[in-house]
Amino acid sequence: MSAVTNGYSENISKAIEALQNGRMILLFDLEGREAETDFTIPAKSVTPADVKWMRKDAGGLICVALDPQASEKLGLPFMADVLRDASQSTDSLNNIVEKGGDLKYDSRSSFSIWVNHRDTRTGIPDNDRALTINKLGEIVDRALDGEIPDFGKEFRTPGHVATLRAARTLVHERMGQTELSIALAKIAGITPAMVVCEMLDDNTGRALSKEDAIKYGKNQDLVFVEGGEVVKAYDLWLSRA
């Protein structure tokens, strides 16, 4: 039986410690869902070197998952809703806007808007993306502290960092890396703004297999966490909240 710390499994405890220290972990969702492993790290901790690491060794889309309450306070919409509204005056969008049943892995996506911080230039270099990511973490902190920040004063869209709006009840509503990463942030007591980036296989072009992701994690000394573990830990955390 695994050792436990404060009621959490040893593995979850290691993940919590890593995130509290601003370090990267690997997060797998579920077999039968996306079945993908994401690099995962707190937004406020990201450096340009981390952005380089994710784009080179992970290779997927670098996104920032955001707390649902903070997203609401900041006025961040779901992108599908934005496009659905736009489709009312733009006929060409009618047939391509996400609808129920379109996704093979979930009922809907969590994409919100793509942004650059206003202090960036083009927004795409590692240092620009790191700045935008850091500032997203900071504005989430301020929103949850009771402030109502002017999001548009600090960010512009379109940009090069995708934001993801977590479901209101997190893993009890949706089991994506968006919700799993925010649940982990809640458990760890850190700002619920988390960077996620899918790991891809250089040989096949598909998602990296779970087995290969685990091997990579061992070689890089990164904690590997599965969605089921996160749900159990989150339920325990909620029972104590």
Rank of each mutant, 00 (worst) to 15 (best):
T5V: 15
I187E: 11
G32I: 04
I124A: 11
I16F: 07
D91R: 04
L19F: 01
K210H: 05
A162S: 14
T37Q: 01
R165N: 02
H172Y: 14
T163K: 06
S109A: 11
I113E: 01
N95G: 13
W53G: 04
S2I: 08
P125C: 04
I96V: 14
T157Q: 08
T5F: 11
S9R: 05
E179W: 14
V4P: 03
A18S: 15
S209W: 03
A185R: 04
F78Q: 06
S92G: 11
G146C: 11
I113A: 01
W53M: 15
F111N: 02
A167M: 13
K135A: 09
A193P: 02
S9G: 13
R142E: 15
L236Q: 15
A58F: 06
I139N: 03
A58P: 03
S45E: 05
T122R: 13
G22N: 10
T37H: 03
T132N: 03
D141Q: 15
L131P: 07
G189E: 04
A193F: 00
Q69S: 08
V97K: 05
G146S: 11
R168P: 00
A143H: 07
T40Q: 00
G60F: 09
K232H: 12
V195L: 06
R240F: 09
K210G: 00
D38P: 00
G159R: 05
T157C: 12
P68K: 03
G176T: 04
G75E: 05
I16K: 07
A213W: 13
L236Y: 15
E34R: 09
V230C: 07
R174A: 09
L27I: 02
G146Y: 06
